Computed example of a mutant assay.
Amino acid sequence: MEAYQREFFQFAIGSGVLKFGQFILKSGRNSPYFFNAGLFNSGASLRRLGGFYAAALVRSGVAFDMLFGPAYKGIPLVAATAIALAGEHGRDVPFAFDRKEAKDHGEGGVIVGAPLVGRVVVVDDVISSGLSVQHSAGLIGAAGAELATVLVALDRQERGQGERSAVAEVTARHGVPVIAVAGLEQLVQFLEEDSQHAAAADIRAYRARYGSS
C-alpha cells in the first residue's frame, strides 16, 4: 500500500465519508462499510481529495492530455484534480465537463470548458454500473478525442451481476485501465495495520462472498 493511500483512508474516515457498520446497498447486499464521496463537501476537503486523485493518476504512468468530469458529481472532482495537478505536480492541463441537457443559447452544446482533444481522463467518484463511463466515452469519441483512462476514488472490487466487477467490465468494454486512489484490498490492509481487526474481518468476509474474480 502506498503512503498516499494510507493517508486517503485516514482522511476519508476522519471526514465521515468512509463508515463501518451495516449498510444496505442499492444492490440489496448488506455491506460492512459505506463510502459516500458526496460528503467531501467543503473547500478544504475537496482540495485535499484532488491531491489524492492527482497522485494516483501521476503514479499510474498513463499518458493523458486533459481531464473530463461527468455531470454532476464529476464536476467538482475534475476541477479539484486539475488544480492539484498544476499545484502539486507542475502539470497545467485543461479540463471540461458536460451538461445533463444541451444548452440552446449562448455557446450552446453540452460540453463546458476546454474542447475535448487528445487523450482524455474521465474523473468520477466510483463506478457502479459503468453507464456513466459509457456516456462519457461517447461524448469523447464524438469529439474525435480518445478515452485514456477512468480515475475514481474507491474500487470496491465487487462483482456485479456476473463474475467480473464493474471496473473490470469497463476495462473490457473500452479497452482502457481504471485507476483508483485505493481499493478494497488496501482498505483491509489499512484496517489491520490500524488494529481495527473487527472491521477488517467483516470486510474480508464480505469480499469472500461478493468479491470479483
Results as ranks from 00 to 15, higher is better:
residue 59 R to C: 00
residue 23 F to G: 01
residue 38 G to N: 02
residue 132 S to T: 13
residue 189 Q to S: 14
residue 157 Q to N: 11
residue 145 A to P: 09
residue 157 Q to L: 06
residue 67 L to M: 08
residue 80 A to W: 13
residue 170 V to T: 11
residue 23 F to W: 08
residue 103 K to V: 06
residue 165 S to N: 06
residue 89 H to E: 04
residue 44 A to F: 05
residue 117 V to N: 15
residue 44 A to H: 04
residue 183 G to M: 03
residue 109 G to Y: 11
residue 99 R to G: 10
residue 166 A to L: 14
residue 200 A to W: 01
residue 189 Q to V: 14
residue 22 Q to D: 09
residue 160 G to Q: 06
residue 153 A to M: 13
residue 87 G to E: 15
residue 64 F to D: 04
residue 71 A to D: 08
residue 180 A to Y: 01
residue 87 G to P: 00
residue 107 E to S: 15
residue 154 L to W: 12
residue 66 M to L: 09
residue 111 I to C: 15
residue 72 Y to D: 07
residue 109 G to C: 15
residue 192 E to N: 12
residue 97 F to R: 10
residue 64 F to S: 10
residue 48 R to M: 09
residue 73 K to Q: 14
residue 26 K to P: 07
residue 95 F to D: 13
residue 76 P to Q: 05
residue 9 F to P: 06
residue 138 G to D: 09
residue 194 D to G: 02
residue 149 T to S: 15
residue 84 A to G: 11
residue 23 F to D: 04
residue 124 D to T: 04
residue 132 S to P: 06
residue 190 F to I: 07
residue 77 L to F: 11
residue 65 D to L: 05
residue 64 F to H: 12
residue 38 G to S: 04
residue 48 R to G: 07
residue 101 E to K: 11
residue 41 N to H: 07
residue 94 P to A: 09
residue 158 E to G: 10
residue 50 G to R: 07
residue 42 S to R: 06
residue 156 R to Y: 13
residue 81 T to K: 13
residue 181 V to K: 02
residue 139 L to A: 01
residue 174 H to Q: 08
residue 158 E to I: 07
residue 101 E to P: 06
residue 163 E to Q: 12
residue 91 R to G: 02
residue 92 D to C: 03
